[in-house]
Computed example of a mutant assay.
Amino acid sequence: MHSSVDHGRNGARVSAPGYTDVEPGLRLPDREFAVGRRDLVRYAGASGDLNPIHWNERAANEAGLPGVIAHGMLTMGLAARTVTEWTGGPDAIAGYRVRFRRPVQVPDSGQTLVVVSGVVTEKLEGRRVTVELTVRCGPTKVLTAAKVVVQMP
């Protein structure tokens, strides 16, 4: 997995930007997530979502899907992680919404790549900013209307 977290010379995490450092148009570092079947099984166990469309090819095909798909909430969580790495922690997220557009298909062997990019679109009162995310698997947008409200330091 590729990490876009900024680190200082000694490997320590660089502090999150402050409200005065952020303006509309600022791009967050792009983040790539490699997702494999093992990740889906782990997420199923952690979340309690044991639907076999997330780990069994036959069950996915019987449900009318082209193959095994990632959990929507896993995809949503990966997208949010892009913001939490930029801010320095999950406690900065004050609001989050997305629309699920297309499922992330995960091959039997190997991995699929989910790519997340973000841009600050608005400064709000109370030291908050809105970040719009673009979430793709290959050329396909898998989440749309993905917006995160972030409480800045």
Rank of each mutant, 00 (worst) to 15 (best):
G88D: 07
H71G: 12
R31A: 13
A46P: 02
G11W: 00
W55L: 02
F100R: 09
L124N: 08
C137A: 15
N51W: 00
R37T: 09
T121H: 08
Q105E: 13
A80D: 07
G8T: 03
T134N: 09
A34Y: 06
R37S: 03
R38S: 15
R9P: 13
H54I: 10
V14S: 04
T144H: 01
S15K: 14
I53Y: 02
G8A: 11
V114T: 13
P107W: 04
M73I: 09
Y19G: 02
V142R: 05
R97D: 10
A70D: 09
D108T: 15
T134H: 02
A46R: 03
P90R: 10
I69C: 05
G8K: 01
A79I: 06
H7R: 14
A44L: 10
L143M: 13
V148G: 10
G89F: 03
N10C: 00
E125H: 03
K123S: 07
G138P: 10
D49V: 01
T121R: 15
M1N: 09
T134A: 08
G77R: 08
S117D: 13
P107F: 07
D6S: 05
V150C: 08
R9A: 13
K147P: 00
C137D: 08
E23Q: 11
L40S: 06
N56A: 06
D91I: 03
A92V: 09
R99F: 02
V35L: 11
N51I: 00
A59P: 01
R9N: 11
G67M: 01
A146N: 08
L28S: 14
P24H: 02
T144S: 15
V116W: 07
L26M: 11
V68L: 01
I69K: 04
H7F: 00
I53F: 08
E57G: 01
